[in-house]
Nucleic acid binder design. Structure first.
Length: 482
RNA sequence: UCCUAAGUAGCUCAGCUGGUUAGAGCAUCUGACUGUUAAUCAGAGGGUCCCUGGUUCGAGUCCAGGCUUGGGAGCCA
């Protein structure tokens, strides 16, 4: 194929009157003369000027929105106002036609709901072009951050046999037939006949395996798909999502919080530096959207301002107990505006409470630590009971404005006897997790880690509000199209 | 799963207290124009009113059930 010039390069070029070949998809064709051409290399379009008097009617008719074309001609300074350069097409080839009556994208605003229905084509819009460029940059920044610090990128399994983690409903993995399924004498399914010789599921977290790696490699992280079969219908849950899970040996909760905060700030800095056009576009997009909201619901920062603010300020770090005190004294609690009123220590925080802390009280990201043991997982390190005998664990959740829980993590319980006691208490079978317990038997050490929901990060950075719009092909209840 | 709103042309939406042939803007098609920026002007075509039942002389409109979607809640990342 003829070597094409990327539009991103051409728009920056000043090599006027040289011949170039460009290939891309037609956004609009105005006045039978002007093609707005996009090849995905950047957000902006290149104007290709067609000499319609000397171009066959047959070709002109095929230059429709969505068609793929190749154009060769001189790069010149634009005569028109909206752009600095343009290509005067000497030859024009239609690579792939696009029936204008059937192509669903028009040169106008489409609702995000409609675009979700045509997720296979929504990449061709400015908005999704920007979102997936930013998503890519975020992913790259994650790897760069950890690589610079000597972390090992560990590939934990996607299929797991343990269903003891309690992190949520799991998708079953099986090759057993749906009919005449082999049964045990008691009528239950005989998984010995199944592919793995036992029941298997898609992973809900790589943490336990990650800990095994950290207890030898020192510092590891995972970054892969995660699956939850919860019937969650919200703007911040997916059945298939990507999670980043670092795990660090010889680290406590303090180190863990520092790592998470540094990671988030590093990534945001990277994107501010490397995705200027995309963030500028998304900032404008969000501002437009905010215009339709009532004044009191609009945010005080625009998207860029919000990201900048996040970098310039330390995340607020408070304990659960302190948070409860703040919430108890808060106006919405005293005026009984909360749906769930905060009355006593031990209550799980509802999202209205988290939002109050983050969006009203502190107005910045908040790290909540030391939750009551009763509402947290078995593997979190137990604190000494306080003077009132209340038990807490060394957990931390990082809450972001508009997103809620972005990060959930903890210092891990490294003391074998404590861990076993907790597992018994929570009815987690020790024999199934013998391999996990082995790390505490042989050379146990303090360690800590967390899980960062990648799509939630993309939401925050792009200013989008529905998690289904920041992953190419979202999976959620009743939907696995594409 | 619960609460709530919605589903009408390719898209966004109007359609009153049930009434004759269901509308608009954009898109599409045809023609005009030709340095346009979501081009402009004139005309034309385009409908399983989400599905299944029911009430009624008559249902886009009312009732019941279902499906899907948006928003909120729960589960969580």
């Amino acid at each position: 194929m003829i070597k094409r010039e990327k539009i991103s390069n051409i728009l920056k070029s000043t090599n006027f009157n040289t011949e170039v070949t460009v290939m891309g998809w037609v956004k609009t064709f105005r006045n039978n003369q002007f093609i707005a051409l996009n090849d995905g290399s950047c957000m902006n379009n290149l104007q290709v000027v067609v000499d319609f008097a000397n171009t066959s009617e047959e070709i002109l008719k095929k230059i429709t929105t969505g068609a793929a074309i190749a154009a060769t001609g001189l790069l010149v300074e634009s005569l028109g106002k909206g752009q600095s350069v343009e290509v005067k097409a000497a030859t024009l080839e239609v690579l792939g036609e696009s029936d204008a009556e059937k192509f669903p994208l028009q040169p106008k605003k489409h609702s995000l709901e409609f675009l979700r229905d045509i997720a296979h084509l929504r990449f061709r819009t400015n908005t999704f072009n920007a979102i997936f460029k930013v998503r890519n940059a975020l992913a790259f920044a994650v790897h760069q951050f950890f690589n610079e610090r000597g972390f090992v990128y560990l590939h934990t399994p996607i299929i797991t046999a343990s269903d003891a983690e309690g992190a949520g409903e799991m998708f079953r993995v099986t090759t057993l037939p749906f009919e005449n399924t082999p049964k045990n004498e008691d009528g239950s399914i005989d998984f010995k006949e199944d592919f793995f010789g036992r029941s298997a599921n898609l992973t809900v977290s790589g943490q336990l395996e990650g800990e095994l790696g950290a207890m030898a490699l020192g510092e590891i992280y995972t970054f892969g798909p995660t699956f939850r079969a919860e019937n969650s219908n919200t703007t911040r849950h997916l059945a298939e999502f990507w999670m980043i899970e670092p795990e660090v040996a010889f680290a406590d909760l303090e180190d863990n919080m520092n790592l998470a905060e540094n990671l988030l700030k590093y990534i945001i800095t990277y994107v501010l530096k490397n995705c200027k056009d995309e963030l500028a576009f998304l900032t404008t997009r969000l501002a437009e959207e905010e215009k339709s909201k009532p004044q009191n619901e609009r945010s005080e920062f625009d998207l860029m301002g919000k990201l900048q603010f996040c970098l310039e300020n330390n995340f607020e770090r408070i304990t659960y107990t302190e948070a409860i005190e703040i919430l108890k004294r808060s106006k919405p609690n005293q005026k009984k505006q909360f749906k769930y009123l905060i009355e006593e220590w031990g209550a799980d925080l509802q999202s209205e409470h988290e939002r109050y802390l983050v969006e009203k009280h502190f107005k910045k990201p908040v790290i909540l630590t030391d939750y009551p043991a009763d509402i947290k997982s078995f593997y979190m390190r137990m604190n000494e009971p306080d003077e009132q005998g209340r038990r807490t664990v060394r957990a931390m959740d990082i809450l972001f404005p508009g997103i809620g829980e972005m990060v959930g993590g903890s210092q891990r319980e490294e003391r074998l006897d404590y861990l076993k006691a907790r597992m018994d208490e929570m009815h987690i079978p020790q024999d199934e997790l013998y391999w996990y317990l082995d790390t505490r038997k042989f050379g146990t050490a303090p360690h800590a880690g967390f899980g960062l929901g990648f799509e939630r990060l993309v939401l925050f950075v792009t200013g989008m509000t529905n998690i289904r719009d920041v992953i190419p092909f979202p999976r959620f209840p009743k939907n696995a199209e594409f």
